[in-house]
Each structure stands twice: as structure tokens, then as C-alpha cells.
Design a protein around this nucleic acid. Structure first.
Lengths: 209, 209
DNA sequence: TTTCTTGTTGAACAGTTGTACAGCAAGAGA
DNA sequence: TCTCTTGCTGTACAACTGTTCAACAAGAAA
């Protein structure tokens, strides 16, 4: 009896974290859940279990489930873009080479992952009825596309005229990348990664005047 | 009292339909619900209310909600493709002209509709955990892409060589169309219909050798 | 008119959901 | 050691989910 009480005292049932630490843990747990089970199984209780905390904690740190998901969206989208950005800039090269590397990365297992698609499905669904999530999307997508646009601008400035404006070239490539990513995610047997890269590589070649 | 009873007799509470008629009504109601409220509000009770029937009826005609949704998916996807097909063939013309018309139709209000996107979001979500819905997708997407592929094949046979195989050309165009449709649906302020058409029209021009 | 088939009802069931909140307890500061 | 702040727990709640099924009744057939 005495012994048990002592053990309990020495092994706290839980450890207190600072709000930012706890939010980080909750965001990671939410991402794990979305990625594992998809949007329709995403519940406060699932997330709480994944994070190893009680149900109540989530509404202590976030006013609603949507707020947490929006935070998770921002987190994964930004870290993916950062990852892409770093890998591309690390190896340097011309704008043309960087775009090619961007395409190759888009068709690498990091990005071509059914789990990742499930996460985006959840975000798109929540965008339909959450201003918060919509704002995060607009913010992330803008940065994504302006990055592409800037690279096409560089190509033109380097002396290679294009058949269309950098804006349309970027819109086209992002559409192509997203569309092929979508179709591959819905059914990976549709085409291979190599075919995907081949199609996008052609876009890069063909838009040169 | 006597009068009331007579009225009740003459105005039945409901009318009995043949299974096929009722299924048609249920499918339409399900589509209305998906399109109006999106995937996360799609429930048996909502569909039943929309169809003006009781909750129990749905499980009388379908063994599960998923079966009904799969039926609804097949219905809307097939009718959209039929609509496209008819409009394209009606005006005839070369394969090149038909493809251009396909692109224009893709960026017309019929297809560029946030409501339609909500429906597809629901289907994609259900594909993640329903063999039934997945099968319908595979079936519909195959017919969609093979239609495009066939038109590119015609172009080649008409004497215009392409920079890539009909398969890759079709994959590319469908990726482009789907990707731009996706991005427009997520945020219609991204680009205009004209810009979308312009991008796809360029694909048609550029792939010629 | 009566019978009979079967499409239809609506309550009941056993779950699930997000959120609120009274109270517990971790662990820093005194 | 004790106090006190506040991160955290877990129950309670009201509303919802898909599915089942005994009972009802529409309307064709006899």
C-alpha cells in the first residue's frame, strides 16, 4: 500500500508541456491520423489516443477541431515545400535544371504517396466549410505557384523566350503536376512515375519558342 | 370523423414505386445532398429527407450507404461523359477540333462548378475505403482517358505526327484538365476559364512535332 | 369487395461525433 | 516543505451516425 503510493508519486500519470510543445505533439498526432485513416475517421478521440492524451486536452489548446486541422495543414504543406525548396536550391543549377528537379521530386516516393493524398483529401474537404483551412490553402498554394512562376521568369531572362507568359507556364505546370498526382493517387496503376516525369519534362521543352 | 377517414383513404401517405424507379429517385436525392452539403454531411437521413422517404427505405433498396453512393457516382460520371460525348460528336469535325471542343466544355460552367467538385470530393473519399466506389472510378476514368487517347490516335493517322505516344498525350491532357479543374475548384480566383482554355489549347498545339 | 404481395414506415439500437467543465495533479516558485 | 498556477483528465451531454426489423398499407390480382 505504502509502496504503491510511493511508486505513483514517482511515476506521474502524465507530464505537463508548454503550450507550444503540446501543440506540436497534437499536430503530429493529427497528421498521423489523417495519413493513416483518412478524413472520415478523423476524430478528436483518435487524435487524442494517437497523442497519448485525453480528449479534453485538444479543446484546451484549440478552440475547435478545425483549428487543429488547419494548423496541421499549414505544418505539412510548409514542411513539404521547404523540403522541396532546400533540395532544389542545394544542388543549384539553372532555372531549367531546377524545374526538372522539381518535377522529379514531385514524382518521387516522398510525394507520390497514397497516405499523403488522404491528408490532402481531408484538407480539401475541410476547406469547403472552414475559412481557416481555406486561408491556409491560399497561402500555401500561392507560394507554390509563385516559386514556379519565378523559375520560368528566370528562363526568359536567361534568353530563352517562351510560348506563353511565366504565369501561364507556371499555371500549366502546376496543373499538370497536380492533375497527374491526383490521378496517380486515385489509381497508381494508371501510369508509372517515369511516364509522369516524361510528360512534365515535355512541357518544359515544348513551351520554348 | 367519417370525412377524415375518407380523405385518408383517397390521399395515400405514400405511393409505391418499382425498384428501378425508386432507385432512380434515391440516386438523384443522394446527388443533390452531396452537391449541396459535401461529403461530411452526407447521411442516410439527409438523403431520405431529400427523397421524401423514410430512413428505412434506403437499406431496403441498397445493402449499404456505400452501394447507393457508388450507384450515384456511376450515374453522374456516366451522364457527364455522355453529355460531353454527344455535344462533341454532334458538331463533328476533325479529331483536333473535337479535342478543342472537349477542352472548351471542360472549362464551361457545366463542369467548372464548386458543387460538382464537392461531389467528386465525396467519391474520392469513399474510394479510400470502398472497393465498390473504386471500381466505378476505374471504369469511368478508363472510358474518359481512352476517349482522349483515341482522338490523339486519329490525329496521328490523319498525318500529323506527335512528339509523344497517344497514350502519353492523353495522359498529359487529362492530367492538365483535371489539375486545372482541381485548382480552380479549390480557389476560383486562381485563374480564369479563358486562361485555362489557353493553357490546354497550347498543349494541343505544342505536342505536334 | 377481399386477398395478397411487397414497397414502405418509423421506432429502436448500439455506436459514433465535437464540445464543455468540474476537479485533479504536475511541478515551478517561495 | 508548502503553495499556487495551470496543464490536464475523464465524465457528461446532446446530437448525430448506419443499420435492423416488426408492423403497416398501397395497390394489383382474384
Amino acid at each position: 500500500m505504502e509502496k504503491e503510493k510511493t511508486q505513483e508519486k514517482r511515476q506521474p500519470k502524465y507530464s505537463r508541456k508548454s503550450p507550444s510543445e503540446r501543440r506540436e505533439i497534437l499536430v503530429q498526432a493529427a497528421l498521423n491520423c489523417i495519413v493513416r485513416d483518412g478524413p472520415h475517421k478523423l476524430s478528436i478521440r483518435q487524435i487524442a489516443q494517437e497523442a497519448g492524451v485525453s480528449v479534453g486536452l485538444i479543446n484546451h489548446h484549440y478552440t475547435s477541431k478545425e483549428e487543429l486541422v488547419a494548423d496541421a495543414y499549414r505544418h505539412i504543406a510548409a514542411s513539404l515545400m521547404d523540403d522541396f525548396g532546400q533540395r532544389i536550391k542545394m544542388e543549384g543549377g539553372t532555372a531549367q535544371e531546377q524545374l526538372l528537379r522539381f518535377i522529379q521530386l514531385s514524382f518521387s516516393p516522398v510525394n507520390l504517396d497514397p497516405k499523403l493524398f488522404r491528408a490532402w483529401l481531408a484538407f480539401w474537404t475541410m476547406m469547403q466549410h472552414s475559412e481557416e483551412v481555406s486561408a491556409v490553402h491560399a497561402e500555401q498554394y500561392d507560394s507554390y505557384r509563385s516559386r514556379l512562376e519565378h523559375l520560368f521568369q528566370e528562363i526568359i531572362e536567361a534568353g530563352t523566350p517562351l510560348r506563353m507568359s511565366p504565369r501561364l507556364a507556371a499555371l500549366g505546370l502546376s496543373g499538370l503536376l497536380d492533375g497527374l498526382w491526383l490521378e496517380w493517387s486515385l489509381d497508381p496503376t494508371n501510369f508509372t512515375e517515369e511516364e509522369g516525369i516524361e510528360i512534365c519534362r515535355n512541357w518544359l521543352e515544348m513551351i520554348k519558342k
